[in-house]
Amino acid sequence: MKKHSGMRPHDIVVLLKIAAKGKKKWFMKDLSNELHISASEISESINRSKFSGLIAPNKKSIMRLALMDFLEHGIKYVYPQQPGAIVRGVPTAHSAPPLNNTIVSEEHYVWPYAKGNKRGQAIEPLYATVAEAVLKDEKLYELLALVDALRVGRAREKEIAIRELKIRILGEGSIIDEKSIDSKLTNKSL
């Protein structure tokens, strides 16, 4: 067995792609094609996530609570990001759905992408092919944009992003539903 050398940024992309599929069956070759990541990298990513406890030992499902815990408490420290130069790209963080429906800002954040339709401050994606992959998968796009809000957002943006991620990651295929998430958030803020 290979020595575990720690999680890599694209491991989060792979996990979020699996989460975006919900209860649909998935195969590593499909993840490879849809994310534009080599099959060997997908396999190694799944193994790292298994070792980290983010994928079940049978490698068939993500550990939703563990993933949400990591995103809420660790992503901003492990994969921090600072907005960069103004470039053309695909909107992310508060500039993308679903946050752009709630948060109005003069600052726009984008993943650099030559075929993008917006200009804004560059946010380095968790993997180079993210901008291309999200244009074909709306659910993945929302998840990755919400994660970027955790990486670069202000307190209000992060709070809303956490709530939206919990709904999307824990709400589907889990005993946790939106009402219980809302009540937990309300009780936590009191």
Rank of each mutant, 00 (worst) to 15 (best):
I37C: 08
P9D: 02
R154G: 11
A56V: 00
P83A: 14
E172V: 08
K118W: 06
P97D: 11
A155E: 15
L31H: 06
A149H: 03
G53L: 07
K184H: 11
R88P: 04
L54M: 11
L35S: 02
F70S: 04
E138S: 15
A161E: 07
D11K: 12
L71A: 06
G153C: 07
K17A: 01
G84R: 15
G22K: 08
V78T: 15
S49A: 14
S95K: 03
K118H: 07
R88N: 10
A56K: 12
L126F: 13
W26P: 09
I12M: 13
I62Q: 01
R151W: 07
Y113A: 00
V152R: 01
L31C: 10
I12P: 02
S183Y: 09
A39V: 12
V152D: 13
M28V: 09
M63W: 03
A96L: 12
I175E: 13
V78R: 15
A66C: 09
R154K: 15
I86E: 08
M1A: 10
G173Q: 14
K158F: 01
A56E: 10
A131Q: 02
G53F: 03
A19E: 07
K2S: 11
G120A: 10
L150S: 06
L71N: 05
A66T: 04
T102W: 05
D69R: 15
S38G: 13
A66Y: 00
A39N: 15
I75R: 11
L35W: 01
I123M: 11
E34W: 01
S180L: 08
K166Q: 06
G74K: 12
